[in-house]
Design a binder for these strands. Structure first.
Lengths: 231, 231
DNA sequence: CGCGTCATTGATGTGCATCAAGTGGTGTGG
DNA sequence: CCACACCACTTGATGCACATCAATGACGCG
């Protein structure tokens, strides 16, 4: 995959650290790790030590409901962070699974804490990252609480495309790395409904879809669906 | 209200600071403010400077959907923190409204950052608070994605009661400070549905309800409803 | 006391879940 | 290289849960 391999070096470079500071950051919190498709990066309940930055590939995170059932609570692209939920209780509160072969940086959280004290810019970066994650989830809550099936699927597609665009990819085309069931789980819908909605969007000419390859034809119409019913 | 007035002093006391450190904390980040019922603590888009700790009373937070419509994304009791979403973009991403007369501590975020560098325990506390907020929202997402109306209402009631219990109140009785519409907005349901579900739970003897006063009669049965349909 | 807000309750419609076949794509082993 | 098996996906028929529309009732506040 042509994702920039420099993530998350890029991120730390962009906050204005000096060269020696950057080296120190790399040494302390950039521990690379490869993850194969379908493998767990971490599991629910596992003791927390690292947070992770995705370098390449993509992940889903699941939260097990008491009942053995699992629900997808997010998809993660290169540049995203994983495991922030584990800080509170010092144990991972969800599991992360690779949707394709992937690479991550493992960041020992104790080192993150030490660096944060030492380098105010790093501290601010992590506060902002966590705040952004809170915000992302808020939007998911609003999406689930205010949109119907069509709107949810539209919002999902646009969200993914926006994030891919921010990473230098096309804003109109993508390959879905997750199954219809994963999408449905994330959107609070059954996989059949996801399939039907995608078919309908394609029939209406808003998108083209070939298996997992999606391209957007009428972005504005899609965006209109992703807003609460406009009356 | 008989909520402990010492919040959040209690919180900072519990992480093992020395007396002079605690005084410094109080001086730098404990700026008290009173908020009247219905008033905004902050509004969406407003420039971010403080985070807030609730000392007494309760709040709801709303996120405006593009369409002018608002959705409740959380309710906040004494001891909870508000405004963490604003850190990322340095502007508040939602609004917070007092559900009754309330008191908060305004904490200038720059002071929080400075103290975090100075006192590792404070830094860890704030990382944990933010992580806990991420976790709280994850549970809301799972609730919305996997439960039907009855389950959502049951989960909502139990969540509130659990949080009140942690603050020294009864785990079986409470007064709902928010309207049925607020509850519905938070749960992704219409207010009529909330009303009907509450009536049904009462008819089945799981709860007693008199206007906004709720008491739980059969906690286990309620907890069973709050799990994904058990088949 | 009267009005506005909040809540309850009923009747009807619809969006999505559910159940059920059937298709296509992929990877594996003969 | 082909055949089979498995998994992901699609598509149809039916039913139910919840939204919607509507009217009435109960507070609580000025």
């Amino acid at each position: 995959m042509p994702f920039p391999r420099c993530i998350p070096t890029e991120l730390f470079g962009s906050i204005g650290l000096t060269e020696p500071q950057l080296e120190r950051v790399q040494k302390l919190i950039f521990v690379p790790r490869a993850v194969k498709k379908g493998d767990h990066l971490f599991r629910e309940g596992q003791s927390f030590r690292d947070i992770f930055a995705v370098r390449s590939g993509s992940f889903k995170s699941d939260l097990a409901t008491d009942n053995g059932r699992e629900q997808v609570i997010g998809f993660h692209l290169p540049g995203d962070f994983l495991g922030l939920q584990g800080i509170a209780a010092q144990s991972h509160a969800c599991e992360a699974v690779a949707l394709e072969d992937a690479e991550v940086c493992a960041m020992p959280f104790e080192h993150v804490e030490a660096l944060s004290r030492e380098l105010p810019r790093v501290q601010r970066l992590f506060y902002k990252l966590m705040s952004a994650e809170i915000l992302r989830e808020s939007h998911a809550i609003v999406m689930l609480g205010s949109l119907r099936a069509e709107g949810r699927v539209a919002a999902f597609l646009l969200d993914l495309l926006d994030r891919l665009k921010a990473r230098g990819f096309s804003e109109n085309e993508m390959v879905l790395r997750m199954t219809r069931e994963d999408i449905g789980s994330y959107l609070g819908l059954k996989l059949e409904t996801v399939s039907r909605v995608l078919a309908k969007l394609a029939a209406n000419g808003l998108i083209r879809i070939d298996n997992r390859h999606v391209s957007v034809q009428r972005r504005d119409a899609l965006a209109a669906l992703a807003k609460p019913q406009s009356i």
